[in-house]
């Protein structure tokens, strides 16, 4: 938390010092390549889905300041997500487990016309974040899952340094593509990389970090021919590499198929989704094949 506060302070100072560059305060989203098409189950969006159990997310992202430039835009901001999910039962209200993801960071976007690469590929964005994800039971709920010694503890959460590369294709055709590649390097990884395994263990235990490294790749597509009805499809995959040598890696593949109804201030997207692989938060050690349906609400 101290690190996050220092980062925010530095960002604020940077923004203040750059006032001559016409900084925009609270300009909107924290990213140029936004998340509304994302198939990432941890995308900071508002959603509800059911199948085979109820889950809901309350998330959003916000830029505190942006420094637009001719060749590059810098955004300083953050995102937050609280995800509720039922581990058992058919209740429509998710109230059994909770996962939170909070991140602060900076994103450098290169608009489509900025350079030869972006003129070809579209908007490119590099984001660096400091984040934390943690998993909890809600109230007195007992998960009840059988414990395996190869399980990833602490819901595979922890504090991390995140790096993301994203792109959004140019609007030359009705099909907009948004690929995104990301890495999360958890705190306990760093002493491990320099051979300090004991220190890594202490960090993992003290900070309750079950994962050491995570990477993800997604490709989202939206057909924007019609400004009011826009089909979208996203594919997402990730891999969680646990801190424990004895724990098994966790994999996930997910698709999201929906139709977005963009409005003036919001966008409503009913969707169906399917997953194969690990769950989220405390359910990370489950391997499931899931099919569900839901709705997503995004601010525009």
């Amino acid at each position: 938390m101290k690190t996050l506060a220092a980062l925010f302070t530095a960002a604020s100072l940077l923004a203040a010092a750059s006032s001559a560059v016409a900084a925009d305060w609270l300009p909107g989203r924290s990213r140029a390549v936004t998340y509304e098409d994302s198939a990432d189950p941890s995308a900071p969006v508002v959603s509800y889905a059911y199948g085979p159990r109820a889950r809901a997310t309350l998330g959003g992202d916000l830029a505190f300041v942006s420094l637009p430039g001719r060749r590059m835009d810098l955004r300083l901001g953050g995102s937050a997500l609280v995800a509720f999910e039922n581990a058992r039962g058919a209740r429509v209200v998710p109230e059994q487990t909770l996962e939170s993801v909070v991140a602060l960071g900076a994103a450098w976007a290169f608009p489509g016309a900025a350079n030869p690469l972006s003129r070809t590929l579209g908007t490119l964005e590099l984001a660096v974040t400091l984040g934390n994800r943690s998993a909890h039971r809600v109230s007195a709920f007992e998960l009840g899952d059988r414990i395996h010694t190869t399980d990833v503890p602490f819901g595979a959460g922890g504090s991390y340094l995140g790096v993301e590369l994203a792109a959004r294709s140019l609007a030359r055709s009705p099909l907009v593509l948004t690929p995104r590649l990301g890495f999360r390097l958890f705190t306990n990884l760093f002493p491990d990389l320099v051979g300090q395994r004991v220190a890594s263990d202490v960090v993992a235990d003290e900070l309750r970090e079950g994962a050491e490294f995570m990477d993800f790749l997604e490709l989202d597509m939206r057909w924007i021919q019609n400004p009011r009805v826009q089909p979208l499809f996203g594919l997402y995959t990730d891999a969680i590499f646990p801190h424990d040598d004895s724990a098994h890696r966790r994999w996930l593949g997910r698709f999201l198929l929906g139709v977005a109804f963009p409005g003036t201030a919001f966008e409503l997207t009913p969707f169906v989704d399917g997953e194969l692989g690990h769950g989220q938060g405390l359910l990370v050690n489950r391997s499931e094949a899931r099919l569900g349906a839901g709705v997503r609400l995004d601010a525009r």
Binding site: L181, D192, A239
Partner: peptide, 14 residues
């Protein structure tokens, strides 16, 4: 022990 395994495996996976 192969301490760089997570990162290397992560890159390989991608």
């Amino acid at each position: 022990v192969d301490r760089s395994a997570p990162l290397r495996a992560g890159f390989f996976y991608l």
